[in-house]
């Protein structure tokens, strides 16, 4: 059945959220209308503000409303190391680990010819220009260990070597606290192949 036009429109709009189908959209709509109109207004305001203001950091391309994101602007980060990741959420994941104190470059995707995504779409000309400025001494390739991720890493590595920048790729292997028995064959054979002196 359908509700009044405005309610229908709200339910329909809520379905843009990931994981929200017709049922949960309806639940959310009625919850907001019946119990939390203030919260809904704050949500609407936050949505409009974020959609209007949030763009990309000029330096690392991550999502940011400032021309330079907080990380790029920080004077406590090591500016000689640059870590290349696919998505803004990867920045948070790497940073959370605490082992990395350099800057990031966010591709917002990976090379994928079949999806029409090439170097231009990933802003690699910007990265090229940045490597040419020579502040960066080491580039860490932290693209995903998928075929597209490897191809992307290879492409960027060739680019960086032309500027004489040292290139490394994040290690792959067994997760801490994992049990060998439950690790997939591909990861395990990679871990054996890339074993190191101990």
């Amino acid at each position: 059945m359908s509700f009044s036009p405005l309610i229908d429109r709200l339910i329909d709009a809520l379905r843009v959220l990931p994981g929200v189908g017709p049922r949960s959209a309806q639940r959310a709509a009625f919850h907001l209308l019946e119990r939390d109109r203030d919260g809904a207004r704050r949500l609407a305001e936050a949505l409009v503000l974020a959609m209007d203001k949030v763009g990309h950091c000029n330096q690392c391309r991550t999502l940011s409303e400032a021309a330079l994101c907080a990380l790029c602007n920080s004077d406590r980060r090591d500016r000689s190391v640059l870590c290349v990741v696919e998505n803004p959420t990867d920045v948070i994941a790497v940073d959370r680990g605490g082992a990395y104190n350099g800057l990031f470059f966010v591709l917002m995707g990976h090379l994928s010819p079949l999806d029409g995504i090439g170097p231009k779409e990933l802003g690699l000309d910007g990265l090229d220009a940045r490597l040419a400025e020579s502040e960066v001494k080491e580039l860490i390739l932290a693209t995903n260990p998928t075929v597209e991720g490897e191809a992307t890493a290879h492409y960027i590595a060739e680019m960086a070597r032309r500027h004489g920048v040292r290139v490394s790729r994040i290690a792959q292997g067994v997760p801490f606290g994992g049990e060998l028995e439950f690790i997939d064959a591909g990861t395990l054979s990679q871990a054996i192949a890339d074993r190191r002196a101990y």
Binding site: P113, P145, V147, E150, A151, H154, Y155, A157, G186, Q190
Partner: peptide
């Protein structure tokens, strides 16, 4: 067996 391609092989595969 799964052989992981290096970057160059990955590009050619694509």
């Amino acid at each position: 067996m799964v052989r992981r391609p290096d970057g160059r092989a990955a590009l050619s595969g694509l």
